[in-house]
Design a protein around this nucleic acid. Sequence first.
DNA 1: AAAACTTTGTTTAACCAATATACAAAGTCA
DNA 2: TGACTTTGTATATTGGTTAAACAAAGTTTT
Lengths: 386, 386
Amino acid sequence: MKVTGDQALVKKINKSIILHTIRMHSPISRAKVSEVTGLNKATVSNLVAELCGQQLVTEAGPGESSGGRKPLMLHFNEMAGSVIGIELRVKQLKAVLCNLGGGILHERDSVLENHDFPYVLGQMQQMISELIATAPPSHYGLVGIGVGVPGMVDEHGVVLFAPNLGWEMVDLRSILESAFAVPVTIDNEANAGAQGELNFGAARDVRHLLYISAGSGIGSGIIIGGELYKGARGYAGETGHMTIEAEGKPCSCGSRGCWELYASEKTYDNPGLSLPARTTTGLVKYALEGQPDTLSHFNSIGEYLGIGVTNLINSFNPELIVIGGALSEAEPWLGEPLRRVVAERTLPYHKQQLEITFSRLGSRGTMIGAGFSAVMHFLGNIRVTL
Amino acid sequence: MKVTGDQALVKKINKSIILHTIRMHSPISRAKVSEVTGLNKATVSNLVAELCGQQLVTEAGPGESSGGRKPLMLHFNEMAGSVIGIELRVKQLKAVLCNLGGGILHERDSVLENHDFPYVLGQMQQMISELIATAPPSHYGLVGIGVGVPGMVDEHGVVLFAPNLGWEMVDLRSILESAFAVPVTIDNEANAGAQGELNFGAARDVRHLLYISAGSGIGSGIIIGGELYKGARGYAGETGHMTIEAEGKPCSCGSRGCWELYASEKTYDNPGLSLPARTTTGLVKYALEGQPDTLSHFNSIGEYLGIGVTNLINSFNPELIVIGGALSEAEPWLGEPLRRVVAERTLPYHKQQLEITFSRLGSRGTMIGAGFSAVMHFLGNIRVTL
DNA sequence: AAAACTTTGTTTAACCAATATACAAAGTCA
DNA sequence: TGACTTTGTATATTGGTTAAACAAAGTTTT
């Protein structure tokens, strides 16, 4: 979008800076906000007054004195409104009602019997309506809906292609926006998960994060400089179809040797493989008993995860890697081979300060992240780059 | 960097918008600038007056009338200063003196006998001094030096690691800045090449570009939204060590099956391979005569290039791919297998509107791009993101 | 050729947000 | 009690954009 400078822009920038400073450091005094932002005390006072008028910030009594007048502590008003975060999975639909701070107020869950779009949409709309009914009264009410989808999503919220659902070119955003009359953000499931871990999970305050969602396929959410990197058309991170074996197994995408054929739940589909179960949850039970085929298979998945992760490290050089998705349940058996392979294969400069963890939000990360996208869309975020 | 809003910022933003509008659309009238930027006519007049005072913009007589008073055409003053762009290769040092519009004024070239840092630095400094001596008199004189280096460069211009030169942790920027007392920008060679093609070559006005530099190794320059994407620490695009064969050939980086072992000049090193020459230039001569081993080898390199390019397409989804570097000389033999493999392996959404070309600037792309980095550093570029 | 209209670029006055400065309020410390 | 500190507000100033009027220099119509 074309943006020129005028005084309205200045005000928008500073107000946004102040709001997010309060949101991140709450409770905080006006004086402290002035100090950390570099803005003049008077400017902070004026804009805080407006934010209070908008109910986004509240005054919460005096704080501790540090040798002078007691500060008046400011809070980000998490309860000024609510959002709904939804995760659409292959066989399941999960949703939460959150406040503006990402706190979960209510949770819903349902099983999907098929992937027909009208059926899934109906389930989704019903779940949204139920959650709206449970929402506590607030100044803004429901301010947005965020959805995490297992597929490629363009910048307008159109689901271009979701192979596991059999969807193509579904304008989910427009449909939900006209149904509920609130802004809707649609994100790739891995991008949503990355935002969840970044703001509420294992990656708080990390600037450069790589989130790998390993489940029925593999997708990656990439955070650069504290912000989600969406790439050209909004669908960077389609890494599951990265070739790691030039002449490897043929893939449904038309290519060969795709990463997700070796390091996702797709590996369970090989009928020649001797496995006591064909789901991650099932296999985890056997792994706990030490079943050899299972242990060896998890070891293989871990190693192949390591190969793909190494490729991504070479391209993006993150500080932290978080493994999420259904396979993160198998952390005890995947962690060692994954870390071993990455250590063997990465360039020396990447090894420094590189950490690999597994998701901390577990199965909730994606929907919380999707909800957070809606929060940020409501609050706005404006930045200046030199 | 922390930026807050005030009137000085507004002015900086608008002045930058106006300057770059004139630079891109020159010659253009004040009225037209006001129209395309959305800024008020008075604002444009005031800031243009300042830019004229700074010698960055010049008035160049009246233009064609369109039914009213004739417009006073404005030019970006390319001759207000000059920059030096340098490409450091494994066996060669190349440099140009450019004006601010990327026009080449003088060119220098020298052979490197070894890679000892003091020797190379000496050669580079001598070349810079010679070019400075030939610079025409101008208002700002030499305003910067840009260098493209075959290796990883951090955000402070330190060459972290350049395997083909045997360099590690060389603070090239500081050294050159204190030697010549002008700002110096150090870029990875592929990033510089990408900027060259974007501004002056095969990729003008492309918003999402992937530039592949294939030579003694492989590196990638990634342009997202019209801007160079440098990643976390400034060294995104180290794609040569992407694994494309999980259990492939061992690489000096410690990993196996790295892309550049299959698709760069490194393939010539295999002594078991029957080849009539061991340089790209040499092989091109044989290929022109139809020598079978050569043709088959170029075919193989083309196919493997296609595999890695596909992986990058899946992650970045560019509009255009430009192949540069020494191997681009072999375009007639690489193009077909490369495009064929990409067409076979990419997801359908990437196939649409995806074009693959070879470098148009040839061996000059990198140094012109490096010089352009220095120009942009001098002019400044400030943006606001909503 | 004169009058009416168009387009370009400048001048003027108004507006508005941030800022420095002064100041008031409310605390701590000796 | 009195000096000092810290917090937050009030006031005048600064400096940028802008709308509107205007001047200058064309073209088109009558």
